[in-house]
Nucleic acid binder design. Structure first.
Length: 562
DNA sequence: AGTTTCGGCGCC
DNA sequence: AAAGGGCGCCGAAACT
């Protein structure tokens, strides 16, 4: 039996608390207490705390060593509910929700604040300001009612609960940080980039490569200036439209090799070099502020430090504490497995019902064993590829897995037509920026791609480029977003499984988690991840044969995983 | 001089 | 010849 209480910090530093009944309505009087952490700590029987904003409350609790089992974040739920109701963009603060309820003027959300390196800031800015507990409870009761009216009320309740759980995880990860060896990082930088020169200019290796590029062109060229490089190629008789890797790669010129090497190392230097280390690593931890549900698809983002873009080569610096290990776990072929679960395509569910390599299974059935072709076809279907080999292979995919392809096709059509598109649990895709009339403006474009001939399914027809882009977005949204739904449930389950252990979740990146734990706990953590993935699959998608296997590695250094 | 956009690339 | 979803970050370029 869940024991629910609501809580609201008071202006004077105290806190108001109130018990809630099973219906979500107050089951007793509001009580004023002097100390937030004390109010929570003295009620260990409470299994879910209802509050306005996890970001407002939970870091303060964690700072005093208090964790909570579950919570319900009213402002996050408001965001999800508004989206589900097709009211994307309306102010999502609790104060705004209250105003809508009472019929008063709706206050706009205050602007968000940017992250500052190294600052002990909250994980993210709450949407609005403090609200008295009785008002908060009115909003909460109304939200319970709105869940009831959702397309799938049970799923919607699961979604808001899961994202609230994600916010607890995010706050705890922000507090723990990712173990990071500045010493290893510095050694790595020196090895890759060479010595730094006084004055903050390019390190030795970059200067050398810039010289090589210049020598190859026969004049001084700055490789970090795209315009300069394009001009230099033009003078050498080679036309390039940009200096992107994929375009430069196939050019036959002696400057290409040092240029590509320069760009690779330059990237390390500017994005993960010495100043990054200075800004973002403190006391042996990298603390990117994780923000659960920071994107429209429900994927997380980090605020500061590029926490979800750690280059593979830099992962050498992620090192467990002495006697501890990193359990690095990566979901295998997550997106096609999610597509199987949401489309209920019999053939795809069958191959996704095994732990073995899904792309290999798909290729055995539809691509005469060519795994790469199968992978490209699946990803092309999910991303909305409109040309190239992926499109050709899509026809084969459609023959073998018609329901799966039809599912993303239907999402694309809905997106093009401006209809609402939802993830499995009910997160809803925002409408087009200028939703409405956009059909006439591109009337000169015939549309109807030639490459689609001979295919039986829906093809992107006489739609504007803008509308096709929305179609691709919607197509990807249902898969990427439903994968994010599942990942939230995974994190929630894993957090509970690790509750009584020393192990801590320290990193999450879409389909990958890292747990930092004492060496002797590592095997238990691996089991916990496997169990949590299976549980998340059942909770999210219901009764399907789809499995969600993980590749796990118990290592001392992140770079040693896979 | 300060702020916004762009190009390019890192991750999934 | 063509290229496909989601993000963040940085310096340079373009803007006010």
């Amino acid at each position: 039996m869940t024991d629910r209480w609501a809580l609201a910090p008071a202006e004077d530093g105290g806190v108001d608390v109130a018990p809630l009944g099973p219906d979500g309505l107050p089951a007793g009087p509001v009580r004023r207490e002097s100390d937030l952490a004390g109010a929570v700590r003295s009620r260990p029987e409470v299994t879910r705390w209802v509050w306005r904003s996890t970001a407002e409350v939970y870091p303060r609790l964690l700072a005093t060593g208090v964790r909570v089992e579950r919570c319900y974040d009213i402002e996050d739920a408001e965001t999800l509910l508004l989206g589900h109701e097709g009211r994307y963009g309306e102010p999502r603060s609790a104060a705004a929700a209250l105003a809508r309820l009472r019929g008063g003027p709706v206050p706009p959300d205050p602007p968000q604040r940017a992250a500052e390196p190294g600052a002990q800031s909250p994980l993210f800015e709450p949407a609005g300001d403090h609200l008295p507990l009785p008002d908060l409870l009115a909003v909460y009761a109304e939200q319970q009612h709105r869940h009831q009216k959702a397309a799938h009320p049970d799923r919607m309740r699961l979604l808001t609960a899961a994202e609230s759980a994600g916010m607890l995880v995010a706050a705890e990860m922000n507090r723990s940080g990712l173990p990071w060896s500045a010493e290893v990082h510095r050694a790595l930088l020196h090895e890759l980039l060479g010595e730094r020169y006084a004055g903050g200019g390019e390190p030795r290796r970059l200067a050398e490569l810039a010289d090589e590029v210049s020598a190859a062109f026969g004049r001084r060229v700055r490789p970090d200036l795209p315009a300069d490089v394009v001009k230099a190629f033009a003078q050498a008789g080679i036309k390039v439209k940009s200096t992107r890797r994929w375009e430069i790669r196939s050019v036959d010129h002696p400057a290409v090799a040092p240029l590509l090497e320069y760009k690779k190392l330059y990237r390390i230097w500017v994005a993960h070099g010495w100043s990054w280390l200075q800004d973002w690593v403190r006391d042996g931890r990298f603390r990117p502020e994780f923000l659960a549900g920071g994107t429209v698809t429900g994927r997380w983002v980090t605020n500061g430090g590029g926490g979800l873009q750690i280059p593979k080569v830099i992962r050498r610096a992620v090192v467990a504490d002495p006697g501890w290990r990193l359990v690095v776990a990566d979901a295998d072929q997550m997106e096609p497995r999610v597509l199987a679960a949401i489309s209920r395509d019999p053939g795809l569910m069958e191959v996704a019902g095994r732990d073995s390599d899904l792309y290999q299974s798909v290729s055995d059935r539809a691509f005469s064993g060519d795994r790469e072709q199968a992978k490209l076809a699946v990803l092309g279907a999910v991303y909305g590829q409109t040309s190239g080999d992926g499109l050709k292979n899509l026809a084969a995919l459609r023959r073998r897995f018609p329901k799966a392809v039809a599912y993303v096709d239907e999402a694309a059509r809905a997106g093009e037509e401006g209809r609402l598109v939802r993830t499995w649990l009910g997160r809803t895709c925002p409408p087009a920026a200028g939703s409405g009339e956009d059909t006439a403006e591109e009337a000169g474009i015939p549309g109807g791609e030639e490459e689609n001939e001979g295919q039986s399914g829906w093809v992107p027809g006489y739609a504007s480029a803008d509308s096709r882009a929305r179609g691709r977005f919607a197509r990807n949204f249902v898969v990427q977003g439903s994968a994010a739904d599942w990942a939230l449930l995974l994190l929630a389950a894993l957090r509970r499984a690790l509750w009584d252990m020393a192990a801590e979740l320290v990193f999450f990146q879409h389909d990958e988690v890292i747990v930092h734990c004492p060496a002797e706990e590592a095997e238990a953590v691996v089991r916990a991840i496997r169990d949590s993935a299976a549980l998340a699959g059942r909770l999210t998608f219901g009764d399907t044969p789809v499995r969600f296997p993980f590749t796990t590695a118990v290592v001392e250094c992140y770079a040693d995983a896979k």
